[in-house]
Design a protein around this nucleic acid. Structure first.
Lengths: 138, 138
DNA sequence: TTCGTTTTCTTGACTGGTTCCAGAAAGAGT
DNA sequence: ACTCTTTCTGGAACCAGTCAAGAAAACGAA
């Protein structure tokens, strides 16, 4: 039932390759990791994977909805496997550490703009900025 | 009463220089402009201003609260003079065009995370993603 | 299985937005 | 006016991420 990386990839119409499986597995265990961190983790598991391959995998998975990409201003992007339940994020201004926050107002989409100015809005993104416990302490 | 750039700079403890005045004046007339656009606008007014000077001015003003910086993922940063009233933004995925949206839930801060995970939260940022009228039309 | 097509991986160069650096110049307080 | 501070100039540097070409691997049909 708990669909593994192989099923997820297949359902998304993506080929099943070792780098992709490793990226998805590693991200499932380490949510909100940066591309750099993913690359390091995947290399520790597979031996050698190019940076480019990591980016390709991340982009392909983000495009098909397997991964969600978070890009906090001033920090490298982070990725997570938890998708589809429009939760939000806490981001540390200092170190970029990112944590999940459940939606404040019930189910998705929890926010609707009062006036869209003619825009076709398809997503509401909420970021809470602050300092994480580690960076806050002196 | 409507304080001009000079008063704003003075109150913020910043020196009053021609580039700063020009940046603030130009941004007041062209909200949500990119650094590039600001540089172009300021040069049209003053003749010649270095890119670096523009960035310095923008950063100094953002640091002191005279300007708010918006950094939509995948697009260059944009700046606006409207600060302190925690309004939010609509961003076009295609062209990056940015528009204001008033806060959905009354006065600031309109959102409080239910669980801060130990973070000292100081800001809630809301971005509505979509396509602007120009990019939407076929 | 085997083949052939399609997609992905590797390597390496490159980009765009932004920042860093050193020195020259221009404000502001005394 | 005279310093002292802060800002401007020009150029080099930075970083996350992307583009390009060819080699390699995964899928689907025979």
């Amino acid at each position: 039932m708990t669909s593994g990386p192989r099923e997820l990839l297949k359902d998304a119409g993506l080929r099943i390759t070792a780098p992709r499986i490793a990226v998805l597995e590693w991200l499932a265990e380490h949510p909100h990791a940066t591309a750099d961190a993913v690359a390091a983790g995947v290399r520790a598991r597979l031996g050698s994977v190019s940076t480019q391959a990591v980016y390709d995998v991340l982009n392909a998975c983000a495009r098909t909805g397997l991964l969600r990409r978070i890009e906090p201003a001033g920090h490298p992007a982070r990725y997570e496997t938890r998708t589809g339940d429009n939760h939000h994020h806490l981001v540390c201004r200092a170190c970029g550490r990112t944590e999940d926050v459940d939606c404040v107002h019930g189910a998705a989409p929890c926010l609707e703009p009062p006036d869209t100015a003619g825009f076709a809005v398809d997503e509401a993104e909420v970021l809470f900025w602050g300092l994480c416990p580690d960076c806050r302490g002196h």
